[in-house]
Design a binder for these strands. Structure first.
Lengths: 408, 408
DNA sequence: AGGCGGCGTGTAAACGTTTACGAGGCGGCG
DNA sequence: CGCCGCCTCGTAAACGTTTACACGCCGCCT
């Protein structure tokens, strides 16, 4: 009893507490888990010992028997940039409300790496959140985990292609296709008749969807116009190259719609280097509404994607799937981007319009039914807070400053 | 054997494998853990069954007995903004190399919340990474976890105050004080004689250190100058307000040094609204080098803080502490910021100078010794890649585009 | 030839919980 | 007064691993 080991002191266990409180471990467990059937006096004695010994239950042991870990795994392809930052923030906020721990894992270039990561999480998480834009449905199907999974922004398995609907997990995606069409409608509505597209990497789902939206809307609204697509890879460098090509070549388009903001900013630089004034000589539009988009000049017209909502919604759906695994349906929820009009397309400086025609919509993979179980739209961002140009006569809202209270 | 339960299928355990391979669980375990003493033929038989049954060991059960979880907890005050994004990226990269899982937890406003979060991680992690700029040493001491802990950017416990060194954990901090002094030297070196400071929130460690650096360098270099400090809170709004106050009041300073970039950008907006030209009428400097800093105009002169290195180094130190808990020393490692000269202080457009006099330095809390065990400097960022103004005649390096290969 | 060491494998304990089950006490009611 | 039920609490099994130890076998050394 009294012999003290010089080695690392063992953590205090439930048995230590039971001994000290002169009760059985069962009673301690009951107190810890808030069960009712324990005498107030006993409870108090146990609580005091717990406090005194600073007992905190061993999570691994607990989850071994309860089969609950109170945590979910998040698998991302990368972490760089504002997109993932916001996504994680949305996920974290929702997980915190649901009292779920977050196990983070990133840098998964291919399916094999992702499978390895999933394996490493086995027995550690109750569910998985997977963002794998570079994987198609077949590959995703292969990494079938033994826990509920929700996919974010992955290739949609289309019910139109018979027998192809093999993914049994729900998914949340940004409606890149609809967003691209909305942007094209806007550009065409502003009078542009020749519109080029700078696309993203070939194996990226969103890149593909945005290009498809570009082509479809162009064909629908301007049947006589010929689509012009310059392939980029979502990097600024590729956007610059595309901008040089489009701006210097013959038949310069009236507007350029880049598949993301970063490339659009590259285009801006390219046009500047060519002596072209934006939007007077050529209009530019992007996609994503990254923070930079509001600060470059001219400020970038773009589609804002609801990243925080994406993260939130995914967690909510995952929690539902964990609670009732038998009730999960392979439903794909689409989140609609929002048109943000700034200067780069020649719009009025302060004008800001929302795409009413682009309502939040859902589509079922199996059938056309609409489920009411939707995530809560708690996106904390203040929609109008972002500054239209830099510098502006008035200080913007404080949305962007939240974290900065802690970090300089 | 052949009876199939209609209920949720139980996960395959090591016993299932042992049964199927007609060996004992011990042998399966030995194969799983790569122990040598198992016959090739037996090993092969077991491996085949493992493959066939897709057996993956239950992490909780394993870590219960081995007391190893292969994962570390990361406690952050918040997730918003580029700082945390980069920090997590650095942490993730290092953790991935060390095959450590990351348990993420954020939004800890006070010590109580943090203690709760630490408790929730008990038995789940082998070590803790804590970023708590709003906590002082005493509070940090209280949340003494039973696992190795490394603090990031926290209040330094000074050895000068006797008996105050109660924190037994190592820490990594950004040298905000030294960085602020370096920036002041730069401003004074450019000829500015009246320099005001916009400080951060009162309870923030970095804010305090930067103000201290401002005051000390000012006193040292310009003994006759009177320090002028306007309190901000790291938000753009507060920077704007401070800028209005400083720009419109009597005795307008020649330069304004803001405690972070966000407030500096607020100042830029304020001066613009007052009709002041930067840097001709007034110079502005920030701190952090957030991505925006290079894109606003005039581009912001600032101190770049090595965020990724901070995360990397913290993980490295934590791994060392986990491996050899008895060898940990409460050493505080300082990471030096780097001066980035842009336009907002009236420098030459393209000039870029590094602060040679501000070497990376370390200071021990207990004594003055220097430990060689330093983290590897693998910061992948390309130093000169950032664009000085927008738009620029040449496309920037592709550093900023990495994650964008996956996400539009 | 017999003992002995090494090697391959199995048995069982241990990790720290939760919880089904049962024992004991006590009060109420027949 | 006795029985029954409820309430409190303890005992022990179970979760899925790892690993110390034991055991049997074979070959080598003496």
């Amino acid at each position: 009893m009294g012999n003290r080991q010089p080695v690392a002191k063992r953590a205090v266990t439930i048995t230590d507490v039971a001994l000290a409180a002169r009760v059985s471990v069962a009673s301690v467990s009951r107190v810890m888990n808030g069960h009712a059937n324990v005498l107030p006096e006993t409870r108090q004695r146990i609580t005091a010992v717990i406090e005194k010994l600073r007992y905190v239950p061993h999570t691994a042991a607990r989850s071994l028997i309860t089969r609950r870990t109170q945590s979910i795994g998040v698998l991302l392809p990368d972490l760089y940039g504002g997109f993932f930052s916001e996504l994680i923030r949305g996920i974290d906020a929702a997980a915190r409300e649901l009292k779920l721990q977050l196990l983070l894992s990133s840098s998964h270039g291919d399916a094999a790496e992702m499978v390895a990561a999933i394996r490493a999480m086995h027995g550690r998480v109750e569910g998985l959140l997977v963002l794998a834009p570079q994987l198609d449905a077949a590959e995703l199907g292969e990494l079938q985990a033994d826990v509920p999974t929700v996919f974010m922004n992955s290739r949609v398995t289309r019910s139109t292609r018979r027998g192809a609907a093999r993914r049994a997990a729900p998914a949340l995606v940004i409606d890149s296709y609809g967003g691209a069409r909305a942007m094209m409608r806007h550009l065409i509505g502003r009078g542009h008749r020749t519109i080029a597209h700078v696309s993203g990497p070939a194996n990226n789902f969103d890149a593909h969807e945005r290009e498809r939206g570009y082509r479809d809307e162009l064909a629908a609204a301007l049947p006589r116009a010929r689509p012009v697509v310059v392939r980029g890879d979502f990097t600024e460098t590729s956007g610059y190259a595309a901008g040089r090509e489009l701006g210097a070549g013959p038949g310069r388009p009236a507007a350029v719609f880049a598949a993301n903001d970063v490339m659009a900013i590259g285009c801006l630089a390219a046009f500047d280097s060519l002596g072209l004034a934006v939007p007077r000589d050529i209009a530019v539009a992007g996609f994503d509404d990254i923070p930079l988009a509001a600060y470059v000049r001219p400020a970038l017209t773009t589609m804002r994607v609801p990243i925080v909502e994406l993260g939130r919604g995914a967690v909510t759906q995952l929690a539902a799937a964990i609670a009732a695994p038998e009730a999960v349906r392979a439903i794909t929820t689409q989140l609609a981007p929002e048109l943000v009009v700034r200067e780069s397309c020649g719009a009025a400086r302060t004008r800001r319009q929302s795409t009413n025609h682009l309502q939040r919509k859902r589509q079922s993979v199996r059938d056309g039914d609409h489920d009411a179980a939707q995530h809560s739209h708690h996106d904390p961002r203040i929609r109008g807070a972002r500054r239209p140009t830099v510098p502006s006569p008035h200080p913007p809202g404080n949305r962007r400053a939240r974290g900065r209270t802690f970090r300089g």
